[in-house]
């Protein structure tokens, strides 16, 4: 998977036509062959842009807060990224007319060690679902009727009795340092005041206790239930390498099973499981 040339051309063209103020893409980080996001404002810099299977970070993050506010943005999205963009659009966080979206039919990305990312093995929506221009060959899979790919870790968790599961999570959260990098690097955590944040916290203060971390991360994951697109930006940001996907994938599998095979952000305008209410909704999984 290499769309470096195509993306450079598109960005150059957009700048030449005056359609964008900033192009958000990837560049090589300058010390090894891994990549970091880059926000290009000077058309001369488009040669820095690259796109390969090392283009990991979800760039939709730069559409929130003050990163690119009030600017016309060109950006590159893979399948998972495009789903989060879809949610941003649905939740009125960005205006579609301010965006030029280069969609990728993603073949999966690799981590720093060169291993295929776990979320790519589980991926059900590899092709960008929002785009002005699509690069690559669509996989052709009809994403919504495809069978759910269960994450291996969740399957493992499901086999554990409840008490063991609690102990396991206690152990997982023990190394959380409460920096909230997970929340800040999540494209869908755009709230100006967050209930788990350090200072604006009204529910939890930022104290670094295991129970504090446990409650904060649980609340955070519930706020993302039915919205998380499994891009793993949070895990990339976590300085303690916590397996945060356990929380999100667990929620995802429950929601998929119970709410008409709902997958977050696949359909534009679909407000997601937690926004819809029906008397027929199952509730037997609620403790």
């Amino acid at each position: 998977m290499n769309y470096t040339k195509e993306i450079q051309d598109i960005a150059a063209k957009l700048f030449a036509e005056g359609k964008i103020d900033v192009f958000v893409g990837y560049r090589v980080n300058g010390f090894d062959d891994n990549q970091v996001p880059v926000l290009i404002t000077d058309p001369q810099d488009v040669s820095k842009l690259v796109f390969t299977d090392k283009s990991v970070f979800n760039l939709v993050n730069y559409l929130k807060n003050d990163h690119t506010r009030r600017k016309r943005v060109g950006l590159v999205v893979k399948g998972c990224d495009s789903r989060s963009l879809n949610l941003m659009l649905t939740e009125s966080q960005v205006k579609r007319e301010n965006l030029y979206v280069v969609g990728i039919c993603c073949e999966g990305v690799v981590d720093e060690a060169g291993q295929k990312m776990q979320n790519c093995t589980d991926c059900m929506v590899p092709d960008a679902v929002v785009s002005d221009e699509l690069l690559g060959t669509p996989s052709g899979s009809d994403t919504l009727s495809g069978s759910y790919k269960m994450n291996a870790d969740i399957a493992m968790l499901a086999e554990k009795p409840l008490t063991e599961r609690a102990a396991y999570f206690e152990e997982v959260f023990e190394n959380c340092i409460r920096c909230n990098a997970c929340r800040h690097s999540c494209p869908l955590c755009y709230c100006a005041k967050c209930c788990i944040d350090q200072e604006t916290a009204t529910l939890y203060n930022g104290a670094n206790t295991t129970s504090g971390a446990f409650h904060a991360l649980m609340t955070w994951s519930l706020h993302l239930a039915g919205r998380c697109v499994d891009c793993r930006n949070c895990e990339k940001a976590c300085p303690s390498h916590l397996p945060l996907h356990l929380l999100h994938k667990q929620n995802e599998s429950v929601i998929y099973e119970n709410f008409q095979e709902h997958l977050a952000g696949v359909v534009t305008g679909d407000r997601g499981a937690f926004y819809k209410y029906s008397l027929k909704d199952p509730d037997d999984f609620i403790m």
């Binding site: 926000l39 920096c179 990098a181 800040h184 690097s185 940001a237 300085p239």
Partner: peptide, 12 residues
Amino acid sequence: GNCVSCNTCAFV
């Protein structure tokens, strides 16, 4: 430009 203001730099 590409800082996501995640704050983890200060914590580590």
